[in-house]
Simulated scan of single mutants.
Amino acid sequence: MDVDVFVAAHQAQWARLEQLLGRGRRLTGEEADELVSLYQRTSTHLSLIQSSAPDPMLVGRLTQLVARARAAITGARRASWRDAARFFTAGFPAAVYRSRRWWIPTAVLSIAVGVLLGWWIAGNPEAQSVIAAPDDLRRLTQPGGEYETYYSSHPAASFAAKVWTNNAQAAAMCLVLGAFLGLPVLWILFLNMANLGVGIGLMASAGRLDVFLGLILPHGLLELTAVFVAAGMGLRLGWTVIDPGPRTRRAALAEQGRAALGMAIGLALILFVSGLIEGFVTPSGLPTWARIAIGVAAEAAFLVYVYVLGGRAARAGDVGDVEEADQTATLPTAA
Rank of each mutant, 00 (worst) to 15 (best):
R291Y: 02
A84Y: 09
A264C: 14
F159P: 00
P105Y: 05
Q64L: 10
L253T: 04
L38S: 01
R258T: 07
S153E: 10
G275R: 00
A161N: 05
A76E: 10
V185T: 00
R78A: 08
G178V: 05
Q19T: 07
T333S: 12
T106I: 08
E34W: 01
L196F: 15
A161F: 10
F87E: 14
D321Y: 07
L235Q: 01
A53S: 13
R236W: 12
R68V: 03
R100F: 10
A90K: 12
L309K: 11
T89Q: 06
E146D: 11
F228R: 00
M203C: 07
L196D: 02
A32Y: 03
G144F: 10
A204N: 13
R77L: 11
S158E: 02
R101K: 09
M203H: 10
A79C: 05
A254D: 06
S47A: 08
L20D: 13
Y151W: 07
A107F: 00
Q64Y: 13
W120M: 15
M193E: 02
T333G: 08
N167K: 01
P283L: 06
M233W: 03
L183Y: 07
A32K: 04
Y97T: 13
Q256N: 07
L46K: 04
A252D: 05
V130M: 15
S129N: 14
T28L: 10
G214W: 08
V113T: 11
L35I: 02
T248F: 06
L196R: 04
W239R: 15
R61C: 15
A15L: 12
I49N: 02
G145T: 10
L237S: 04
L175M: 01
R82F: 07
Q256Y: 15
G238R: 00
G311K: 10
S110C: 05
I242S: 15
P155N: 14
I121T: 05
G257W: 05
R249A: 12
L20V: 12
A251P: 12
A157C: 06
F92V: 10
A107I: 00
E148R: 04
I73Y: 03
A72T: 15
A112V: 09
A160K: 00
G320T: 06
G60A: 09
Y151R: 03
M193V: 09
N192R: 04
A53V: 13
V296T: 01
G114H: 00
Q13G: 01
L137C: 04
G214S: 06
P332R: 11
A122D: 03
Y307N: 11
I49A: 08
I270K: 02
A122I: 03
R16S: 08
G114I: 00
W103K: 00
R312P: 07
G22M: 07
S205L: 11
A300D: 02
A335M: 12
S47V: 04
R100K: 14
D83P: 09
Y147C: 01
E146S: 15
L303M: 05
P283S: 05
L17P: 01
